[in-house]
Computed example of a mutant assay.
Amino acid sequence: MARKEYQQKLNELRENVLYMGEIVQERLRMGLAALEDKDEALAEEVITRDAEINEMYLELERECTDLIALQQPVAGDLRFIAASFKIITDLERVADLATNLGEYTKQATRDLFPDVDVQGIGSDTLEMVEAAMAAYATENVADCYEIAERDDALDERCERASEVVVRDLIETELGDGTDENEIEEMLQDVSRLLLTIRDLERVGDHAVNIAARTLYMAENDDELLF
């Protein structure tokens, strides 16, 4: 393969990874919207269309594998391909977490704990993924560090939200006269909400992973990898 054609393949890989990022971000938006509006049709769309993301992932995996096996890239090119492969793995997992939001939407029976701003947390995680993909596109090292710092604030926000759910459940929701069936239903809703918070926190973790791989790709710096 001529150098010009090889460089074109690398450019195409970056473009395809960015496109996958756009699709995954849209699915996350859809999952959050379904959860907010209790839109079961939208939730089902997020769930059923996850197969598209999986197919996209496998195709990009083949692209990365072929570039390594057939071209034996060195130095910067090898880091770029390896980082791209790791990033699509994180994107595929973010899509899985968006699918979880669809599942939680279908399971929800009522609104609980209005003090827990799930949509605000979701918006934060979506912005982190957007910023991480933008950093990958431009190899912006400063943004990689900023995303990692934002994750600390997200973790604290998720921890506080989980504490609110548990505290309110103990203090106000389960009185002595509460029917056992009502208790069981309430516990299912609480479990769903805690899982939602956990999954959104994981989206933030994947955004940090993308930033860490971008930093390594651009600077051969593994500081954020561990």
Rank of each mutant, 00 (worst) to 15 (best):
L97E: 05
V190F: 09
E173D: 14
E156V: 14
E159Y: 15
E139R: 15
T99H: 05
E63G: 02
M186N: 12
E63A: 10
P73T: 03
V118M: 08
N54L: 03
K86I: 02
G204F: 02
E159H: 14
D96T: 06
L97S: 00
A142G: 05
D143G: 08
E180N: 07
D189A: 12
Q71K: 06
A75Q: 07
G122K: 01
L193V: 06
Q7W: 11
R14N: 14
E163K: 15
D117I: 10
E52F: 03
D90M: 02
T125G: 03
N11W: 09
Y136G: 01
N54M: 01
L174T: 02
L32M: 12
D199Q: 09
E219G: 11
E22V: 06
E171Q: 14
D37A: 11
L91S: 00
V94R: 00
A153I: 07
C64A: 13
D199I: 03
M128G: 05
V141W: 04
V46N: 00
M217V: 06
D151E: 13
E139A: 14
V164I: 13
G120H: 02
T196H: 04
D176R: 15
T196E: 03
L67T: 03
L224S: 09
D222S: 14
D205P: 09
I87R: 01
V94N: 00
I68N: 06
T178A: 07
I170S: 11
D124S: 10
D90Q: 07
L28I: 04
N100V: 02
L78N: 04
A134F: 04
E55H: 12
I197R: 09
M133T: 00
R198M: 13
A134N: 15
L195P: 07
R29V: 07
I88Q: 00
V203P: 02
A211M: 04
I121K: 03
D39Y: 07
V116G: 09
A108P: 09
D221R: 03
V94L: 00
D176K: 15
T172D: 14
N220Q: 13
E163V: 15
L101T: 03
L78R: 08
S123N: 12
R202A: 07
N100I: 06
I88C: 00
